[in-house]
Measured scan of single mutants.
Amino acid sequence: SKDTIRINGIDIDVKDLHEEWKRLVEEALKRGDEELAIELLERALKE
């Protein structure tokens, strides 16, 4: 798994994120759902 995830052309540092969150965000991006990916990231970062 990578340490960054690219959303809207912005590389976001996710190395401190739990693997499960990372996977969910990557799944959302694979489906092209950037809005969901951002929402998941925000939730993950609050934890």
Rank of each mutant, 00 (worst) to 15 (best):
Trp21Thr: 13
Lys2Val: 13
Leu24Val: 05
Gly32Phe: 04
Lys30Cys: 03
Glu20Thr: 15
Asp13Ala: 06
Lys15Gln: 10
Glu35Ile: 13
Ile10Thr: 08
Leu24Glu: 05
Glu35Leu: 14
Leu17Gly: 01
Leu41Gln: 00
Ile38Asp: 02
Ile7Arg: 01
Ala28Asn: 00
Glu39His: 13
Arg43Ser: 06
Val25Pro: 00
Asp11Asn: 06
Glu26Gly: 08
Ile12Arg: 07
Val14Gln: 02
Ala37Tyr: 02
Leu29Pro: 00
Ala28Phe: 05
Lys22Leu: 15
Leu17Ile: 13
Leu24His: 04
Ile7Met: 04
Lys22Pro: 01
Val25Trp: 04
Glu39Tyr: 15
Leu41Val: 07
Asp11Trp: 08
Ile38Ser: 10
Ile7Leu: 08
Ile12Gln: 03
Ala44Glu: 01
Glu35Lys: 15
Leu17Pro: 01
Asp3Met: 03
Ile12Pro: 00
Val14His: 02
Leu36Lys: 10
Leu29Lys: 01
Glu39Asn: 12
Leu41Trp: 06
Glu47Phe: 09
Gly9Asp: 05
Ile12Leu: 06
Asp16Val: 07
Glu34Val: 14
Gly32Gln: 04
Arg43Gly: 04
Glu26Gln: 14
Asp3Lys: 05
Glu19Trp: 15
Glu20Gly: 13
Ala44Leu: 07
Glu27Thr: 05
Lys2Cys: 06
Gly9Asn: 06
Ala28Tyr: 06
Glu35Trp: 12
Asp3Ile: 08
Glu20Tyr: 15
Arg31Cys: 07
Trp21Ser: 04
Thr4Cys: 07
Asp16Ser: 12
Leu36Met: 11
Asp11Gly: 03
Asp33Pro: 01
Ser1Asn: 14
Leu24Asp: 03
Asp13Ile: 08
Ala44Arg: 01
Ala37Gln: 00
Asp3Pro: 05
Asn8Asp: 06
Trp21Gly: 03
Ile12Lys: 04
Val14Lys: 02
Glu42Ala: 12
Ile10Phe: 07
Leu24Gly: 03
Asn8Tyr: 05
Lys15Val: 05
Arg23Ala: 07
Lys46Val: 08
Arg6Trp: 05
Asp13Tyr: 12
Val25Cys: 02
Arg43Leu: 10
Leu24Met: 11
Glu26Tyr: 15
Val14Thr: 05
Gly9His: 04
Asp11Phe: 06
Arg43His: 07
Glu39Cys: 15
Glu34Lys: 11
Glu20Asn: 15
Trp21Ile: 10
Asp3Ser: 07
Leu36Ala: 11
Glu26Asp: 08
Leu36Gln: 10
Gly9Phe: 04
Leu36Val: 06
Trp21Arg: 02
Leu29Asn: 01
Ile7Ser: 01
Ile12Ser: 01
Ala44Asp: 00
Ile5Leu: 13
Ile7Pro: 01
Arg6Tyr: 07
Ala28Trp: 04
Ile38Leu: 13
Ile7Trp: 04
Gly32Trp: 03
Arg6Asn: 11
Glu35Met: 13
Trp21Leu: 09
Glu27Lys: 04
Val14Leu: 09
Leu41Lys: 00
Arg6Ile: 08
Ala37Ser: 01
Leu17Met: 08
Glu34Ala: 12
Leu40Ser: 01
Arg31Tyr: 08
Glu34Gly: 07
Gly9Arg: 03
Asp13Pro: 06
Asp33Asn: 12
Leu40Phe: 06
Ala44His: 05
Gly32Val: 01
Glu19Leu: 07
Val25Arg: 00
Ile12Met: 08
Asp16Arg: 08
Ala28Glu: 00
Asn8Trp: 03
Leu40Gly: 00
Ile38Glu: 05
Lys2Thr: 13
Ile5Cys: 02
Leu24Pro: 02
Val14Asn: 01
Glu19Val: 10
Glu35Thr: 14
Asp11Tyr: 08
Asp3Arg: 05
His18Trp: 07
Glu34Asn: 13
Arg43Trp: 09
Leu17Ala: 02
Arg31Gln: 11
Asn8Val: 03
Leu40Thr: 04
Arg23Thr: 08
Glu47Leu: 11
Ile7His: 03
Arg31Ala: 14
Ile5Val: 11
Ala37His: 00
Leu17Arg: 01
Ala37Ile: 04
Ala37Cys: 02
Ile5Phe: 08
Asp33Thr: 02
Ala37Lys: 00
Gly9Tyr: 03
Gly9Leu: 04
Trp21Cys: 04
Lys46Ser: 12
Asp33Tyr: 06
His18Met: 09
Glu27Ser: 07
Ser1Cys: 06
Trp21Tyr: 10
Ile12Val: 11
Asp16Ile: 08
Arg23Glu: 05
Glu19Asn: 09
Arg23Cys: 03
Lys22Val: 15
Arg6Asp: 02
Asp16His: 13
Arg43Glu: 07
Glu27Gly: 05
Lys15Glu: 06
Leu29Asp: 00
Ile5Met: 06
Lys15Met: 07
Asp11Thr: 08
Asn8Leu: 07
Asp11Val: 09
Asp11His: 05
Lys30Ser: 14
Leu45Ile: 10
Asp33Gly: 03
Gly32Pro: 01
Ser1Met: 12
Leu24Ser: 04
Lys46Arg: 14
Arg23Ser: 06
Arg6Phe: 07
Glu26Asn: 14
Ile10Gly: 03
Lys30Val: 09
Leu45Asn: 10
Glu19Phe: 14
Lys46Cys: 07
Ala28Ile: 03
Leu41Gly: 01
Leu40Lys: 00
Val25Glu: 00
Lys46Pro: 03
Glu27Tyr: 06
Arg31Asn: 10
His18Cys: 11
Leu29Ser: 01
Arg6Gln: 09
Asp16Met: 12
Arg23Phe: 06
Leu45Met: 11
Leu17Phe: 06
Ala37Arg: 00
Arg31Trp: 11
Leu17Cys: 04
Gly9Glu: 04
Glu35Arg: 15
Arg23Gly: 05
Leu29Gln: 02
Glu20His: 15
Asp33Arg: 05
Lys2Phe: 14
Glu39Gly: 07
Leu45Cys: 08
Glu47Lys: 05
Ala28Ser: 03
Leu45His: 09
Glu42His: 12
Glu20Trp: 13
Glu26Trp: 15
Leu24Thr: 02
Ala37Val: 06
His18Leu: 11
Asp16Cys: 13
Leu17Asn: 01
Leu41Met: 06
Leu41Ser: 01
Gly9Gln: 04
Ser1Lys: 10
Glu35Pro: 12
Gly32Asn: 06
Lys46Phe: 09
Asp11Lys: 05
Glu42Lys: 14
Lys22Glu: 01
Arg6Leu: 07
Glu19His: 14
Ala28Lys: 00
Leu45Lys: 13
Leu17Gln: 01
Arg23Pro: 02
Arg43Thr: 06
Leu24Trp: 08
Ile38Tyr: 13
Leu40Val: 04
Asn8Pro: 02
Leu40Asp: 00
Lys22Arg: 15
Leu17Glu: 00
Glu20Ser: 14
Glu19Tyr: 15
Asp16Tyr: 14
Ser1Asp: 12
Leu45Ala: 10
Asn8Gln: 09
Asn8Arg: 11
Arg6Pro: 03
Glu42Met: 15
Arg6Ser: 11
Gly32Ser: 02
Glu26His: 15
Ile38Trp: 15
Ile5Asn: 02
Arg43Tyr: 08
Leu17Val: 09
Asp33His: 08
Ile10Gln: 10
Ser1Val: 12
Glu19Asp: 10
Ala44Pro: 00
Leu36Phe: 08
Arg6Glu: 04
Ala28Val: 03
Ile38Asn: 06
Leu29Arg: 02
Asn8Ile: 03
Ile7Gly: 01
Thr4Pro: 05
Asp3Gln: 07
Glu27Met: 15
Ala28Thr: 03
Leu36Asp: 04
Lys22Gln: 05
Glu35Gly: 13
Lys46Gln: 12
Glu27Gln: 12
Glu34His: 13
Lys30Thr: 11
Lys2His: 12
Ala28Arg: 00
Leu24Asn: 02
Leu24Gln: 10
His18Gly: 13
Trp21Asp: 06
Val25Leu: 13
Arg23Ile: 07
Glu39Met: 15
Leu29Thr: 02
Asp11Glu: 10
Asn8Ser: 06
Arg6Gly: 03
Asp16Ala: 11
His18Lys: 11
Leu41Asp: 00
Asp16Trp: 15
Arg23Asp: 03
Ile7Glu: 01
Thr4His: 07
Ile7Ala: 02
Glu39Ala: 14
Glu26Arg: 15
Leu45Asp: 04
Asn8His: 11
Arg31Glu: 08
Arg43Lys: 09
Ile5Ala: 02
Lys30Leu: 12
Val14Met: 10
Glu19Cys: 12
Val14Asp: 02
Leu17Asp: 01
Glu27His: 05
Glu26Ser: 12
Glu42Ser: 11
Ala28Gln: 01
Ile38Val: 10
Asn8Thr: 03
His18Arg: 13
Lys15Ile: 06
Lys22Ala: 05
Leu24Arg: 12
Asp3Tyr: 01
Glu27Asn: 07
Glu42Gly: 09
Lys15Asn: 09
Leu40Arg: 02
Lys30Met: 12
Leu41Glu: 00
Asp13Cys: 07
Glu42Arg: 15
Arg31Ile: 09
Lys46Trp: 09
Glu34Phe: 11
Lys2Ala: 14
Lys46Met: 12
Leu36His: 08
Val14Pro: 03
Glu47Ser: 09
Arg31His: 10
Glu47Met: 11
Val25Gly: 00
Trp21Ala: 06
Glu20Ile: 14
Glu42Trp: 12
Glu47Thr: 09
Lys30Arg: 14
Glu20Asp: 11
Ile5Gln: 02
Ile10Val: 13
His18Val: 08
Glu34Ser: 13
Lys15Arg: 13
Gly9Thr: 02
His18Asn: 13
Glu20Met: 15
Asp13His: 09
Asp3Trp: 01
Ile10His: 09
Glu27Arg: 06
Lys46Asn: 10
Trp21His: 04
Asp3Ala: 06
Glu19Pro: 15
Glu42Phe: 13
Ile10Ser: 05
Ser1Arg: 08
Leu24Tyr: 03
Ile10Ala: 07
Trp21Asn: 02
Glu47Ile: 08
Ile10Pro: 01
Val25Asp: 00
Ile7Phe: 04
Asp16Asn: 14
Leu29Ile: 10
Val25Met: 11
Arg31Ser: 08
Glu26Ile: 15
Leu40Tyr: 09
Leu40Glu: 00
Ala44Ile: 04
Thr4Tyr: 11
Asp33Cys: 07
Ala44Gly: 13
His18Tyr: 05
Trp21Gln: 06
Thr4Leu: 08
Asp33Val: 02
Ala44Cys: 03
Glu47Gln: 12
Ala44Tyr: 13
Leu29Met: 08
Trp21Lys: 02
Ala44Ser: 04
Asp33Gln: 10
Glu35Ser: 12
Thr4Asn: 05
Asp13Leu: 08
Glu26Ala: 14
Lys30Pro: 00
Glu20Val: 14
